[in-house]
């Protein structure tokens, strides 16, 4: 009897964990997607028709075991990169990612020069 009870508890624990993790994943995706008809809101924050339609589609895709990447690709194909809060690295956005790095390298170079100059 005690054994059966333990098994029941284990299954219950496992099912709640699975349910929580899939819900977390769903919410995480909603937070990464911009509601295009709202002012600066994510799908997670919005209750507009557009946001609700997208949530329905995302939910179906998650139920069909599609990956996050596949879901984002589907949305970008229809609405462009702007629908994502994180801009992807592409040739067009490369400078956006490279400029801080370049500035840092140039800054370090100037700093090194200054230090060696003051040492001399």
């Amino acid at each position: 009897m005690r054994f059966l009870f333990c098994i029941f508890l284990f299954i219950y624990f496992l099912s709640t964990q699975l349910a929580f993790s899939s819900l977390d994943r769903e919410i995480e995706i909603y937070k990464n997607i911009r509601c295009l008809v709202c002012q600066g809101q994510s799908l997670n924050d919005s209750n507009s028709d557009f946001a609700n339609d997208l949530k329905k589609i995302i939910k179906t895709k998650l139920d069909n075991n599609e990956t996050d990447k596949q879901i984002y690709k589907y949305l970008v194909e229809r609405y462009g990169d702007w629908i994502l809060f994180d801009p992807p690295i592409k040739t067009k956005t490369m400078f956006l990612w490279l400029i801080p790095l370049l500035t840092l390298i140039i800054g370090f170079y100037i700093l090194r020069k200054k230090i060696s100059f003051s040492k001399d």
Binding site: L36, L54, T60
Partner: peptide, 13 residues
Amino acid sequence: PDGTNSIELGAYG
């Protein structure tokens, strides 16, 4: 009825 076909087309509303 649920707006999903319109989303397929990339509609906003």
